[in-house]
């Protein structure tokens, strides 16, 4: 016959494993992977922003420093969808209870917007332009990836940037 206190101890151990250890391990894993993703993305952004730093990007409606003649201007766009990770999502759940700024989500949107802007500048450069004016930002609601009914939508930052690419005058 088994000692009932042994059974209780096993039950407690299993419950502890299920409700404390497993979530903690998962959160730690998500935090580590999410942080790595974010750092890699920020490094890639910094390098690419540097590479297109010579493209004059403005939100002005005119064409500052435009060359007379030259190729006709062209619409250029960039977009990026960046996912939250399990850790950020969990932390935001807490943040939502207490209120206040969610720095991790603020950074998430910043990354998506910088990515969209960098892609727009890269598109302008690839087409032989060196300036983009009248830049506008937008956001898109893809509604998460909740394919099944009742599933919560996955948090993500989806940003777009568009502007008009043109050539600068040589002396500008």
């Amino acid at each position: 016959m088994e000692d009932p206190s042994d059974v209780e101890a096993i039950e407690a151990a299993v419950a502890g494993l299920l409700y404390v250890v497993l979530p903690a391990v998962l959160l730690l894993l998500w935090w580590a992977i999410g942080r790595r993703q974010e750092r890699r993305h920020l490094a890639s952004l910094a390098a690419r922003e540097k590479a297109v730093a010579d493209v004059l990007v403005t939100s002005l409606r005119g064409f500052p420093g435009a060359a007379a003649g030259g190729p006709p201007p062209e619409l250029v766009c960039g977009e990026a969808a960046i996912a939250s990770d399990g850790f950020k999502t969990w932390v935001f759940g807490l943040r939502n209870l207490f209120g206040g700024e969610s720095r991790s989500y603020t950074r998430l949107f910043d990354r998506a917007r910088r990515e969209a802007l960098a892609r727009m500048a890269e598109a302008a450069r690839a087409r032989g332009y060196d300036a983009v004016c009248n830049v506008r930002f937008g956001t898109v609601d893809i509604g998460g990836n909740a394919s099944g009914a009742g599933r919560r939508a996955a948090p993500m930052a989806v940003c777009t940037a568009s502007g008009t690419a043109y050539r600068l005058a040589a002396d500008a």
Partner: peptide, 13 residues
């Protein structure tokens, strides 16, 4: 959405 990073499918979309 668990590990973070770019959602390439949605960017493409």
């Amino acid at each position: 959405n668990l590990i973070g990073g770019e959602l390439k499918g949605y960017t493409e979309l």
